[in-house]
Amino acid sequence: MASQQVTTRRIAPGLKARIAPTLAVVLGALGLLGVLWQAFGAGFGEKGNVPTFILITLNGLTLAGLLFITASGLTLIFGLLRVTNLAHGALFLLGGYLGLTFIQKGVPWLLAALLAMLATGVVGLVMHQLFLRWNQGQDLRQALITIALSLILADQMLAHFGATPTAIVPPDFLASPTNLGVYSLAYPTFRLAMLVGALVVGLLFWLVIKRTRVGMVMRAGVDDSAMTSALGINVQLVFAGAFFVGSALAGLGGVFAGTSYSLAPGQDQAFLVYALVVVILGGMGSLGGAALGALLYGLVDQYSSAYLPAAYANLSALLTFVLLALVLAVRPTGLFGKTR
């Protein structure tokens, strides 16, 4: 009797721990099956649902590109440097509006994007040096400071750029749609360029972190900043540089978003949340995780808004958080997250 009791006690907690992950995998599989049924259930003909599926998938992929550019900056600042920067969304929107302003003044798109990146990078750097540097490791203080800063920035942007949604005109060479060559479909070239942009950012980022001295110093500094400094390296300088780059990437995200979607008040908070979800989905500080997180988020967002029954379509925004809950149920530190 006694031994039986011991056995049941041993099994019960194990089962309990497996319920959440199993449920998560089953729900995820059901969602995927639903999407595939909707896409291919009516056959592969011109009249079927495949052309729509291709367009929705491309929407999801290009949204993922935009999310990755924005979230890669946050994964650097929040994931690697451990600075709780809730003003990332504000820098994102500021970048978009600055890009818009430059283009309206006649600056070509590419140069305007570069200038907007530079400007948001500088704003982020000033923010870091003035307010955040001396609060390193104090999450709550940093959160409150950056929330305050993002509110101030949001109101200043509302005052200067108004509440009417505006969009940036894409550069001429990306303005006409691209012929996809299947089902006589065409797709906005700029959005495809956004996907390429995300790949380029991801590749450069990876090379810098893994292959260059600066990347090594950054990883060492995150492990043990005092020891890195004792080896003759000015860690604060490297961290400041990383903050500049992370903020500039938020600005680039804003210019991309303003060109492919639109700029409006409130988008700062929306994209902050998207970027946070992507970073947490992928695992703090993992670049590959951010890429995969952005991909999942983009696809789930687009599939759910297209394929949910009409009566439930307004639940699509919620589903991205269901995705987050499912992933965290299986992997509590995110897809590629390490426990520290």
């Binding site: 990883r219 060492a220 492990d223 043990d224 005092a226 020891m227 400094s229 080896l231 860690v235």
Partner: peptide, 24 residues
């Protein structure tokens, strides 16, 4: 003086517990 400056002036340090960087 900051640590990196002290090191550049010619003091080097092998710390207690070694403090190796685990990500490198």
């Amino acid at each position: 003086r900051p640590s990196y400056d002290i090191c550049r002036r010619g003091l080097a340090f092998v710390p207690q517990g070694r403090r190796i960087f685990s990500s490198l």
